[in-house]
Design a protein around this nucleic acid. Structure first.
Length: 823
RNA sequence: GCGCCUGUGGCGGAAUUGGCAGACGCGCCAGAUUUAGGAUCUGGUGUCCCCGACGUGAAGGUUCAAGUCCUUUCAGGCGCACCA
């Protein structure tokens, strides 16, 4: 019989669907395991990256199930987003129709790959029964003061007439139309993620199962820095300017101050000054400078004197205040103290504008002189020219300066974060509407939970011009105030799709709940996610937002866990010829093509075998053939041998050398595959199964069929099928049935290895002289160190090589080697 | 500039705790089978000056022993970045 993957895969996929093989519910008799892969955006077709992501997840889920876990393994659709609207503008297809048909298509493709999802738990973020609760999430955050509206500079694409998320701005240009993105001042909704900055940072330490790379990326993104805010009085004015600095120890080295040109105090500071015209010209210049050029490190530092002086609160000294392009309003306070001697940027600026360079820290081993400096001295040293701090170590002075400032009321200790609040407003149609109205009498009023969802209207037009389709839909906009019943207008912005994806993993626990997003009982059983798998491109945004949501929902009392994902695996990319697969390069390998040529099992096997999951995988057509060849090899050997299998017990006393060899290979593989699956080393797990198959072939080659040990054959072929099942479920299900089993393989127990089969009475160990291999000897594995050395020393070759030399020492490692050190 | 990751045969990769470098697969070579090709099975396959020496990006070091630990350095990738 030939391996006919087409009919086999069709047969089993149908069967799994009919019998509800993957339906799962809470079961307190078993330990739970929540295996989750990042849900896809329904773009229309699966690509190889999806196949890899979901193959890894499916192996994990199926393996854990065989190990006795109650496994939750769901799938869904991150189905709101801009591409659906773009398709509507281009082809006139309503975003909903486009989305649902893409989902149908991709769901079929996933089924064609045989993934073990509980499809009864499928979620789609664009469905009213889901986005109802996305809106509910907004209301909870709003009620707890974590959602607010404020005016803000946002990315604005002038040709698309919409705001863009940061992630939609690629190198300062709109990802869709490639026009330069500007800034616009707009009223926008924000989530106050900054309230959680410290906890999000602290708890990174608890994420033992996360890659260091992702943890360090999140740490950098949150960007905590410790320092102080110091208040500087403006000379001849009531104004006070506050600076944030991480180096209050260098306060006496300050020789000038810089304020961001867009700082609100600038107007008052420059008006009426002789330098006013020059300042205005400079402000205009900075304003028209693109974001990219302005924030580039190599952009030359430029500034202009404001005509104003500020007073150093420590020394009382008067210092000039400059406007400069290297200070930004959105970090710290937008005002910086210039310490040229100890900060490179300030050094460059001071050199250009001929400002004094004053050294206040001297290195311990040499003397620095301001006239000879070619760069700032930013390292540690001893304080000089610093009033009360002279002679202190600068670290000591840093703490002393803060205490001094707090005592005198001229400053405070301050922790600053790089993390900004999360802008969630989008002037787009295909998203979850923000559930608030604006009433003339009551102001901003939230929609009561009982009235959710705020439905997206369907009778809207997509022109790609003008405002968002929602704001041009009067039936949607005009409503009544839930508080006073008077006329009100709906918020026409929708939520960032990252809001939808910040809680979907909780919805899977209780997907049909109509009252609440999920019950505490269900999330208490399933959460947190034991293994999360997805691309590293989500390392910051999605994973940080999901962590924030989990903490907020925990604080509101809706969920018990504080971290959503216990373990995270970031799988590598699928490459072709060393580069990313892309349409423009024409190097895309379509999953459908591979499946129709070799079947889903081959596609899955190749992907799992070709590289470790976290590393990039270079697609190789001939290696895919190799995977296909291997499955055929497995098929043939089982088809040939299963008739010799017998259900009797293995009788250790009657085993031949060949039987023992076979059993050794089989049990070694069981042990190795188990260990490898536990540490997600799937490529080596498969290679171990390959070795096992080679051993079965060797047995077949050297033993006459009449002399096969039926019990050993049974052990070998059963184990082989079971070990391969998580990787290639179709062929193994078919083989399992073919060899006469009637139970379902997917709930069958994972094989256990027999310790007795791994016992050997002879092993080969290496004999080294001065660390170089000189011979190999066969000994009993039980020999002690001394006995091993005795055997080695009596070896002829070793005797000859050590003759006449002084033996310094002998090291023996049981079961491994002997090293004789000679002089 | 700061942080993180990766460098091993012709190729993908293995070596989990410092203990035989190159498992397994691809490719290649040979044999068997076959009219032939394909498929299949078996064997071989790091390099060289081939009974020996060399060999894990490079250079040092620790150790009886280093792909693995330490120091310096080079190359590639990713993230953040005039962050005060």
């Amino acid at each position: 019989m030939k391996y006919d993957f087409n009919s086999i895969e069709e047969k089993w996929q149908k069967k799994w669907e009919e019998t509800g093989e993957f339906k799962i519910s809470e079961d307190t008799d078993k330990p739970k395991y929540y295996a989750l892969e990042m849900f896809p955006y329904p773009s229309g077709n699966l690509h190889m990256g999806h196949v890899r992501n979901y193959s890894i997840g499916d192996v994990v889920a199926r393996y854990k199930k065989m190990r006795g876990y109650n496994v939750l393994h769901p799938m869904g659709w991150d189905s709101f987003g801009l591409p659906a609207e773009n398709a509507a503008i281009k082809n006139g297809t309503p975003p909903a129709d486009w989305t649902w048909s893409n989902i149908d298509n991709m769901r079929n493709q996933l089924k064609r790959l045989g993934f073990s999802y509980d499809w009864d738990r499928e979620v789609a973020t664009a469905k009213p029964d889901y986005y109802k609760f996305t809106q509910w999430m907004f209301l909870q955050l709003y009620k707890h003061g974590l959602a607010y509206k404020k005016k803000s500079y946002v990315n604005w694409c002038p040709s698309c007439q919409t705001v863009l998320a940061n992630e939609q701005v690629v190198n300062g240009k709109c990802e869709r139309c490639k026009s330069e993105v500007g800034k616009k001042d707009l009223e926008q909704w924000f989530f106050k993620i900054t309230d959680y900055a410290q906890r999000l940072l602290d708890d990174i330490d608890k994420l033992d199962g996360w890659p260091d790379k992702v943890k360090s990326m999140q740490t950098n993104w949150i960007g905590r820095s410790e320092g102080a805010e110091l208040n500087f009085k403006v000379d001849g004015s009531d104004l006070t300017l506050t600076v944030f600095t991480t180096r209050p120890d260098t306060i006496y080295g300050t020789s000038y101050m810089v304020i961001a040109p867009e700082h609100p105090a600038v107007e008052e500071l420059i008006s009426g000054k002789p330098q006013e015209a020059e300042c205005r010209k400079f402000i205009e210049k900075v304003r028209t400078m693109s974001e990219i050029t302005r924030s580039a490190t190599d952009t030359e530092k430029e500034g202009v004197f404001t005509g104003t002086y500020v007073i150093n609160p420590f020394s009382g000294e008067k210092m000039p205040l400059y406007l400069a392009n290297y200070v930004f309003l959105d970090y710290g306070t937008g005002v910086v103290m210039g310490v040229p001697a100890h900060d490179q940027r300030d050094f460059d600026f001071a050199k250009k504008y001929d400002l004094p360079i004053r050294i206040v820290i001297q290195p311990k081993d040499k003397e620095v002189n301001p006239d000879e400096m070619t760069e700032a001295f930013a390292a540690e040293g001893i304080m000089v020219n610093s009033g009360p701090f002279d002679g202190m170590d600068n670290k000591e002075a840093l703490a002393a300066a803060i205490s001094y400032a707090e005592e005198k009321g001229i400053g405070t200790r301050k922790v600053n974060f790089r993390l900004r609040d999360w802008l969630i407003s989008r002037q787009r149609y295909w998203g979850a509407p923000i559930p608030v109205v604006y009433c003339e009498k009551c102001g901003t009023v939230e929609i009561p939970e009982s009235e959710l969802p705020v439905m997206l209207p369907e009778n809207v037009k997509f022109t790609g011009q003008g405002k968002s389709p929602l704001s041009e839909c009067p039936e949607f906009v005009n409503t009544t105030c839930p508080k006073c019943g008077g006329p009100a207008k709906r918020e026409t912005d929708t939520m960032d799709t990252f809001v939808c994806s910040s809680w979907y993993f909780m919805r899977y626990c209780d997907p049909h709940n109509t009252e609440m997003p999920f019950s505490k009982e269900k999330t208490d059983y399933w959460m947190n996610v034991d293994q999360y798998i997805g691309g590293v491109e989500h390392a910051i945004l999605h994973l940080l937002y999901a962590r924030f949501f989990t903490k907020a929902l925990h604080d509101f009392g809706y969920i018990s866990c504080e971290e959503p994902f216990a373990n995270l695996l970031t799988q590598g990319m699928v490459l072709k010829d060393g580069t990313k697969m892309s349409k423009s390069l024409g190097n895309v390998v379509s999953p459908e093509e591979i499946i129709s040529k070799y079947g889903a099992d081959t596609a899955r096997l190749f992907i799992m075998f070709a590289a470790p999951p976290e590393r990039d995988l270079d697609w190789n057509d001939t290696a895919v053939e190799g995977a296909y060849r291997f499955l055929n090899r497995v098929w043939r050997v089982i088809d040939d041998m299963h008739k010799y299998a017998c259900d009797c017990e293995i009788d250790a006393t009657t085993l031949t050398e060949d039987d023992k060899k076979l059993r050794f290979a089989v049990n070694t593989s069981i042990k190795k595959v188990t260990e490898d699956c536990n540490r997600f080393s799937f490529n080596t797990a498969i290679s171990s199964v390959m070795e096992m198959v080679n051993a079965i072939y060797a047995y077949k080659e050297s033993v006459n069929a009449d002399n096969y040990n039926g019990a050993c054959v049974r052990e070998a072929i059963d184990s082989l099928i079971l070990l391969l099942f998580p990787f290639v479920p179709h062929i193994t299900s078919e083989l399992w049935e073919l060899i006469g089993h009637t139970d379902s393989i997917s709930t069958h127990q994972w094989p256990e290895y027999d310790e007795a089969a791994l016992v050997v009475n002879e092993i080969e160990v290496v004999v080294q002289i001065n660390g170089k291999i000189r011979d190999k000897i066969v000994i009993s594995p039980d020999l002690s160190r001394d006995e091993m050395i005795d055997v080695a020393m009596s070896n002829d070759r070793i005797k000859k090589l050590t003759e006449g030399k002084e033996i310094v020492k002998c090291i023996a490692v049981p079961k491994k080697l002997i090293n004789i050190v000679v002089k």
